[in-house]
Design a protein around this nucleic acid. Structure first.
Lengths: 200, 200
DNA sequence: AACTATACGGAGGCTTCCTCCGTTTAGCAA
DNA sequence: TTGCTAAACGGAGGAAGCCTCCGTATAGTT
């Protein structure tokens, strides 16, 4: 995991101080959002990173750019996790496990998700991009289960994430409740066993 | 539906001008939130109601109080709808119909829901109260289906609304997608038919 | 008609956002 | 090392929204 900037590689590489500040800003933002949610002020982040506001704005012209930088790493982690699961766990169990991992992430990052939700409102693009990545990850594990004949073929990753992602959006949901609801959803997704129903 | 204030009935009734302004403020807020979502400014609402900001703040000290006033009517309508459905439609079909009504509401009010979501963050109380009312409405239709043996008994109204409510929170969901997902959820909720599975 | 509790309005202070531009410095070349 | 300059820094200050405060107006009562 090289400490690399998110700039087009064509241009001259970023100056050392700039690159350093960029990193510190993202870390400061991550901490601040996790602590104060959407009540976080820009100045607060700049201060925590020991940098002037001007510098912050050059790196991240809009608040959402900062949110995105923080979020991107999380999304990548979820994608990686999907690949790992697909390589090491049986199809149906892999699907279940990844979805549970998703729920754990969502609950752990609750405070940050609030900020994220607001960011999505102003710039639908960010929502779209990350949504696609996550959907792709979900697709990885879902399709395996479908090919194995264990999940209904008429459900796609978009639907799945709309459902599972949605239930994380509500503030006062516990991990336990979400896991329980996931089980319900999975009952709806599981391919019907031909012949006798063995529900539960 | 009498045009009544939300004040404790013990005190002297509100002065006529005050009551009138209160009503106008709520209507202005409803329109503004529906149009501009959470970008709505307080001053904008006051102006639309043809009232000074001072007056607005006396009636609704916190932004959220205004949001709540608008929201309360919507919640009440959903509650009423649940009762109507319970009186005139068969148990399972009634459950389905009310939930579809809920989805229609959520999609139609999408812009307002954004504002609502932010309001919930700052004051969890509002979230709780209305959540309970909606859950009660859901309970009305859900319990009928359960008593008729058509819905799994181990699902409660909280879970149901967490699931169905959640999927409305995402910005880019269409009514069609939500209806489709609802069908999926209902498949998970429907009591298993003993003997042969007739899924789909 | 007079009285007063109740309500109104908007100027202004406060906070946060974001831009602009004078100052500093990293990195390079001689 | 020294000098040069493109790149980066920083924070003052204007813009915008939030909310309070208090002098003014009026509904409702006697």
């Amino acid at each position: 995991m090289p400490e690399v900037s998110t700039r087009p590689p064509s241009a001259r590489p970023m100056r050392a101080d700039a690159s350093r500040n960029r990193t510190r800003l993202i870390e400061a933002a991550r901490l601040a959002f996790a602590t104060h949610g959407s009540a976080t002020t820009i100045e607060e982040i700049a201060k925590a990173a020991d940098v002037g506001v001007g510098t912050l704005y050059r790196h991240f012209p809009r608040r959402i750019d900062l949110v995105e930088a923080v979020y991107r790493e999380d999304v990548d982690a979820l994608v990686t996790y999907a690949v790992e699961v697909a390589e090491s766990v049986a199809p149906w169990e892999g699907l279940v496990e990844w979805l549970q991992g998703f729920l754990r992430y969502a609950v752990a990052k609750r405070t940050f998700l609030t900020e994220l939700h607001e960011a999505f409102e102003k710039s639908p693009d960010l929502a779209l991009q990350s949504r696609e990545k996550i959907a792709a990850a979900a697709g990885t594990v879902l399709k395996r289960a479908q090919h194995a004949g264990l999940a209904r073929p008429d459900v796609d990753q978009q639907d799945l994430m709309q459902l599972v992602g949605g239930m994380c959006m509500t503030r006062n949901s516990t991990l336990e409740q979400n896991i329980r609801l996931l089980a319900l959803v999975l009952d709806g997704i599981r391919a019907p066993i031909s012949g006798t129903s063995t529900h539960r």
